[in-house]
């Protein structure tokens, strides 16, 4: 029956908290890659070069239509057949970064397309270069629109890090599994993992919402 052992909890908590560090690190690294690569994908889809345009769009569509777990397995296990041998961390970060980059590119695209045409024309009429137009005029205005989506995917990537356990990245889930099989007890480790995720996700989401409101205020936009 229901048999919760506090002594066991006390015993395994330090190990799980240590693994939490890896989980957070994986989420931050993965998001960092996704955020930058996503912008590259988004801008590549806006270039006038039709072939680049189409290729990137299809890659994005392909990544979005296949499961993340499969992509992780693919990079880690199939890579070596092509002479690309990566550590679990490197493979995991590439897979998760690529996956979320394709989602974020859509968020960026929606943000960029949400900037009124008149802003482009004003930038043109002032002879601003394309790089300056994007970096100083368009992207700053796209961020408030994109921020909500970017925040959602940040929490999303954090919650998807357990998938990295399948290739042996020593994050929370992986550690909980190991503890479980060592002690033949799964109730406490899995419950704790859930609790830790909740304890990080909820405040992060709240913080992101406040940050969004602040950005909108700073940009002189109305709160949503």
């Amino acid at each position: 029956m229901f048999d919760w052992r506090w002594a066991f909890v006390a015993d395994i908590l330090p190990r799980l908290l240590k693994a939490t560090g890896n989980t957070v690190l994986a989420a931050l690294l993965g998001y960092g890659i996704a955020a930058i690569l996503g912008l590259v994908f988004a801008l590549a889809q806006r270039t006038a070069i039709a072939s680049v345009n189409r290729t990137v769009r299809e890659v994005v569509e392909f990544i979005r239509s296949t499961p993340l777990v499969l992509q992780i397995f693919f990079v880690f296990y199939v890579g070596p057949q092509f002479g690309i041998t990566l550590s679990p961390w490197a493979a995991g970060m590439i897979a998760i970064g690529l996956h979320y980059a394709s989602y974020l590119s859509e968020v960026y695209r929606a943000g960029i397309e949400g900037v009124p045409k008149g802003q482009w024309e004003a930038a043109l009429s002032l002879s601003l270069s394309p790089v300056r137009t994007y970096s100083r005029i368009i992207i700053p205005q796209a961020i408030p629109t994109a921020f909500a989506g970017m925040g959602n995917y940040f929490v999303g990537i954090f919650k998807d890090t357990p998938m990295l356990s399948v290739i042996g990245v020593a994050e929370l889930m992986h550690t909980a599994n190991a503890i479980g099989s060592e002690h033949y007890r799964f109730l406490e480790p899995y419950t704790l993992v859930g609790g830790i995720f909740l304890a990080i996700s909820l405040p992060t989401a709240a913080l992101l919402r406040r940050l969004e409101a602040r950005i909108r205020r700073k940009m002189g936009l109305r709160p949503r």
């Binding site: 008149g118 802003q119 024309e121 004003a122 700053p140 205005q141």
Partner: peptide, 9 residues
């Protein structure tokens, strides 16, 4: 321009 198109940020 008719709608000014100032940079709002």
């Amino acid at each position: 321009f008719q709608h000014f198109n100032l940079f709002p940020h």
